[in-house]
Structures are given as structure tokens and as C-alpha cells.
Amino acid sequence: MKQHHVVAAIICHKNKYLCVQRGENKYPYVAFKYEFPGGKVEPGESNTVALRREIHEELQMDIQVGELFASVYYEYPDFAITMDSYLCTTKSPQLCLNEHIAYQWLRKEDLQTVSWAPADIPVVEKLMDVQRHDIEFTY
């Protein structure tokens, strides 16, 4: 089974979190699901560099990458991922969808109103359990 190391950005702006929706996909179990944006870490790349690169490629957005929030290992039917998710901030909520079909800025209490990709669900659950004062944002 193919294994990938990916990074994901939990981007917060004015107490809302960026959630992006995937489009049509060769793997139907992730098609049209919401996720925290990010992508694969390339050989020789640090997680932080990969995350900034992926967010710029996918969303044309600049972010500040903060601390590691959660690591998830998930086996899909055709591949497995280890996903490291980081708390991130941005000065501007402006973005351009280059790979996704939709996005929403959601308050923490509204995160479960969308259909998440399975690997992102543990991150959403942990985020919902954390008190606001337990998370430090630098922007």
C-alpha cells in the first residue's frame, strides 16, 4: 500500500477556521469532502516549508505556521497517510481556489456541519475539545 507524509494547515482568522472542499476525485471516498488544506511533503523539505508551499500553490495565501497540533495515521482503501496538522494564522482571509471547489470559514462550534475527509475527522474532534485559551495564535 502506498504511504504518504502530508501536512495540513488549521488556518484561523478572526476565530474562524478555513475548511476547503475537494472536487471530483479518482478515490470516491474523498471526493467532495472537506479538509484542512495542505499536501505532500517533498523529499528534503521540512514540514513548515512544505505547508507554506502547498498553501501558496492551492490558495495563493500566505500563512504563519505555528505549533504542531495533531498527527494522524489513516489507512484509506488505496493508500495510507501520516498527516501532521499545524495551527496557522493569516493576516488576510483572501484566497484563490486553485485545487478545491469551495471553501468556508467556520467557527469551531460549526466545524461538524460539513462532511470531512476521514483523516481530518480526528483533527476536527481534537480542535472542538480544545478550549480557545489553550491555543496560541501569533497574528
Rank of each mutant, 00 (worst) to 15 (best):
V6A: 04
V6F: 08
A9Y: 06
A9R: 04
I10P: 08
C12M: 13
C12K: 15
C12W: 06
H13T: 04
K16L: 07
C19H: 04
Q21D: 09
E24G: 07
P28E: 06
F32A: 00
F32E: 01
Y34A: 06
E35A: 09
F36W: 02
P37Y: 01
G38Q: 03
G39F: 06
G39D: 11
K40T: 13
K40I: 14
E42A: 15
P43Q: 09
E45I: 08
S46A: 04
T48Y: 14
T48I: 14
A50S: 14
L51T: 07
R52P: 07
R53E: 11
R53W: 08
L59N: 01
M61D: 02
M61N: 02
M61A: 03
Q64V: 13
F69E: 12
F69R: 13
Y73P: 00
Y74R: 05
Y76D: 01
I81W: 06
M83Q: 15
M83I: 00
M83C: 14
S85H: 04
L87P: 08
T89C: 11
T90F: 02
K91E: 04
K91I: 02
P93L: 02
P93A: 02
Q94P: 00
L95H: 09
C96S: 09
E99I: 04
E99N: 13
I101M: 01
A102W: 05
Y103K: 11
Y103P: 05
Q104D: 09
L106I: 08
R107F: 11
R107V: 03
K108E: 14
E109L: 10
E109Y: 13
L111S: 01
A119V: 00
A119Y: 02
D120A: 12
V123E: 00
E125S: 12
K126Q: 13
M128F: 05
D129E: 12
E136F: 11
E136D: 07
F137A: 05
T138K: 12
